[in-house]
Amino acid sequence: MIRGEQLSKQFGDVMALSPTDIHIREGAITAIMGGSGSGKTTLLRLLAGLEKPTSGHIWYGDEDLCAISDRRLYQLREQMGMLFQYSALLNSLNVYDNVAFPLHEHTDLDESVIRTMVMMKLEQVGLRGFEHLMPSELSGGMAKRVAFARAIAMDPRIVFFDEPTSGLDPISAGVITTLIADTSRKNRMTSIVVTHDVGAGLSIADHVILLWQGRIIAEGPPQSIRDSDDERVQQFLEGRPDGPIPFSRSTTSYIDDLTHKPGTVRMKS
């Protein structure tokens, strides 16, 4: 139901995403995985309409996200949620108002109803009783859970997760991963999860897309990714430094750099 057609994005001279076709299935969890700099966050931001593609189209049903009016875009977004990598809580509002924000903005519900809904979401993320804290008073893990509660506050049909577990302790990461899986299944949500957490990605996803240097190198259900005989895929899954994906990004000779051969190291004069 969400389709990217020959999507590409260029930042200056850097090709962050080479022309890519992508298909996101409705009601399923799609994990977009890859190392840092592989273009996965760029792809997510393109799909969410936060970034305009250099070329290509993004189809939501039969509407092209790049061609519709702002008004229609915002209408579509009322049914979307997004969990940002650094939570992106509005720092002038406390926890309660952050979670209630989309409800205050887009519904005419009575405050008591909103209160009940916010409490339910906070209970889901285990933070009931913390409504009055300000974002600056929260730990990273707590902020992310609040952001999760906010992302699903409107019971959206599509939720984007940008690195939901990065920077979290194992327990918080596990809780967030379980929350994504549970709420997606329960609410028949379309979830798009960008992560470099291989275990989490493979365990909850129905469909996995593996990116490397702005290209899709593998795609399919988790089992097919695990069974892939592509060296690059295996290297990524196992986290080995040696393989077709070079760990070192340096292009000059290590020996030359160490021995200060002229012409190799540019010294500041």
């Binding site: 936060l50 915002y74 009322e78 979307m80 949620g81 997004m82 992106a88 720092n91 989309p102 903005e105």
Partner: peptide, 18 residues
């Protein structure tokens, strides 16, 4: 500026607030 750095403007955007 801080709202941009911390993606709060993107968050608003995604919550359908211009």
């Amino acid at each position: 500026g801080i709202m941009r750095v911390t993606e709060q403007t993107d968050a608003l955007e995604m919550m359908a607030v211009n």
